[in-house]
Design a protein around this nucleic acid. Structure first.
Lengths: 243, 243
DNA sequence: ACAGTAGGATTGTCCGACAATAGGGCGATG
DNA sequence: CATCGCCCTATTGTCGGACAATCCTACTGT
């Protein structure tokens, strides 16, 4: 009996080598990649092959170009880019509002707890700023949603645990459109969110982890009520906003 | 004042359109994609351009080919493929063992809780099978790690919540190599895992959610002890196994 | 109905080419 | 001496064509 033999296309091998070099830090973030021609020469393959490999790195967020720039730079994958893939996957696996909401239920209270224990001054400041933006800012629902997202992001950032930030991100991406629907339909939603954010902010600011977790748990439960009032069926698959 | 204008390369546009068609289910999982030439004709671009777009879909896990086949088939992104991107991102963001372990701490007890509430007969059977494999199976540490991973996966599956499965997956991927080190170094580790799996399995089987969550919490705390005994520094960045 | 085969279609890879434009160096200028 | 603007070159994006390998499919013979 012989073991399976599987040929890998050259573009995948090239990509694998490059990814390896990036993850083992031979190529560090900020470095610029050699030109396509140079890579082709070094790998002994055609430029087209290198380009196909490049697209893989690019869509993994490992390389990117500055806006309006032409040179490819090694870059640490942005949470939002990585999470986009997760969001797509969840949508394609028929994740429902309930599923995502439940994950939030599990994740957010401990995040608030950890944030209260480990936040630094700058974290509190950032949170306060985002909370304030939501209060002052008047009508536009889409901006409100962005600020709510940002509040959660900064709270997770305050835990100084990238795993939590990255776990949370796809949930935010998936819920954002529906949250907008809730804000549009339910008049008191915005006020309730503002109140909740204030309570959580205070608890986190005071380092009262238990309290922060409790308020957050209430906040997330409140989200569910919002869905019910806005007549969004929880067992419905999430329709992801296009792209 | 004019708004920023940013030109997108054709390969990205093509990819975006295809991704859109997949997420909105115009192209359903199982369908085969048109050939590259045909796509090039329809989009009015060159085949090379189509191929570059294809690499993006491929690395996102949206299309794949059956082993040894040549035709591209639309496919739902496998959790493990998607999670690989997340794992890479975490490693590049200098996530430490503590970070990942903490996320496990937050995630696993509620997962066990939900699994106990919603598991079906088949889920229990699958769990029992994996747990049994770990017991019977003798020496090979790498197999043991695989079975531990699989136990967690099946437990998450028993929640019937894809968001939880997908949130958990990168944590497993990142911890697996270190778990192997623990099993290699700490003699009693394997027995403790077997015991813990048995307790959790019983609680889940009996539908005792609280108990399942408690045993799981203990189990995860035990992992940490394993790290300490194996002399793995928790505040050290995780070195991801190559690819 | 089924197996085997031959032709066609598709993919992986290469080569070469060219327009557009960003990068970088050089010279002019204060 | 420092700064600005300009020109040349390198690089990327895209195209067209080509070819070997091999998978797919439809036909044919039993």
């Amino acid at each position: 009996m012989f073991e399976q033999i599987h040929v890998e296309p050259a573009y995948r091998k090239v990509a694998a080598v490059l990814i390896g070099r990036i993850t083992d830090r031979s190529l560090a973030a900020g470095d610029r990649l050699p030109s396509e021609m140079e890579l082709a020469r070094q790998f002994g393959v055609n430029r087209s092959t290198v380009r196909e490999a490049m697209r893989e790195l690019e869509s993994a967020g490992l390389v990117a170009r500055q806006r309006g720039s032409k040179l490819m730079v090694i870059t640490r994958p942005e949470h939002q880019v990585v999470a986009e893939g997760v969001s797509r996957a969840l949508a394609l696996h028929d994740a429902t509002y309930f599923h995502v909401w439940e994950a939030l239920t599990f994740l957010e209270p401990p995040i608030a707890h950890a944030a209260a224990e480990r936040r630094q001054a700058a974290d509190i400041e950032a949170l306060r700023e985002t909370a304030a933006q939501l209060v002052t800012q008047g009508a536009a629902a889409s901006d409100a949603v962005r600020h709510v997202e940002e509040y959660f992001r900064r709270l997770a950032t305050a835990t100084h645990n990238p795993a939590l930030c990255l776990a949370q991100e796809p949930l935010l991406q998936l819920l954002a459109p529906s949250l907008r629907a809730v804000i549009d339909v339910v008049p008191q939603a915005r006020a309730r969110i503002v109140t909740a954010q204030g309570r959580i902010l205070d608890a986190v600011g005071n380092g009262n982890a238990e309290l922060a977790a409790n308020w957050m748990a209430k906040h997330v439960r409140d989200f569910r009520k919002g869905y019910e009032v806005a007549d969004i069926a929880l067992d419905e698959p999430i329709a992801r906003r296009s792209l």
